Simulated assay, not measured.
Amino acid sequence: MTAGRADPIGVDAPRAAAPVGRDLAQTLVFAGTLLLAAFLLFALQPIFTKRVLPVLGGTPAVWSVATVVFQGLLLAGYAYAHAMTR
């Protein structure tokens, strides 16, 4: 132990702060991605399914299958994003 020097236990040395512009750009990219995903899920899916419904027979099963396909594509996108971050 050195005299006159008291380092608190568990306190990290100060690090350089990340540039503010980089944090803002990253936040905007994440926000834009979330908005696009919400748009595709809640706006495009019903429009596409309503157009395909009469062509494929008009049964409730067509709506259900279309919903499962869109949800599966969304899950695949999330799995891809998860895999890319690892």
Rank of each mutant, 00 (worst) to 15 (best):
I47C: 03
P46L: 05
A43C: 06
L24D: 10
T59A: 14
V65K: 08
G58W: 03
G58Y: 03
T67M: 02
V20C: 03
Y80F: 11
S64W: 09
G10R: 00
Y80P: 00
T2V: 13
T2F: 11
A25Y: 15
T67V: 07
F48N: 08
L28Q: 11
V11W: 05
T67A: 13
P19Y: 00
I9E: 05
P54H: 01
P54A: 02
R5V: 14
G10N: 08
L24H: 13
A37I: 09
G32S: 11
V20M: 10
A16R: 14
L41Q: 13
V29K: 09
M1L: 12
G57V: 06
A17N: 05
T33E: 10
A38Y: 05
A16H: 03
K50V: 10
V52D: 01
A83K: 11
L73A: 12
L44R: 03
I47G: 04
F39T: 11
L53T: 14
A61P: 01
A13P: 13
T33R: 13
D12W: 01
A3N: 11
A16S: 10
Y78D: 00
F42H: 11
A43E: 10
V69M: 03
G57A: 07
L36R: 07
V55C: 01
V11I: 12
L34W: 06
G77M: 04
L53W: 15
G72C: 04
F39G: 09
L24W: 15
G58Q: 04
P54Y: 00
L36F: 15
L56G: 04
P14A: 13
A81N: 04
R5P: 00
D23A: 14
P46M: 05
A18M: 12
L40N: 14
A6K: 02
T59G: 14
A3D: 14
G72R: 01
D12H: 08
A43K: 07
G58F: 02
A81G: 01
I9V: 13
A17M: 06
D7Y: 02
G57D: 10
D12I: 04
A17F: 04
L74E: 05
V55A: 07
T67D: 10
P14V: 13
P14I: 10
A6C: 02
G10A: 04
F48W: 08
L28Y: 07
T33W: 12
A61Q: 09
G21R: 10
A43V: 12
M84V: 11
L44P: 01
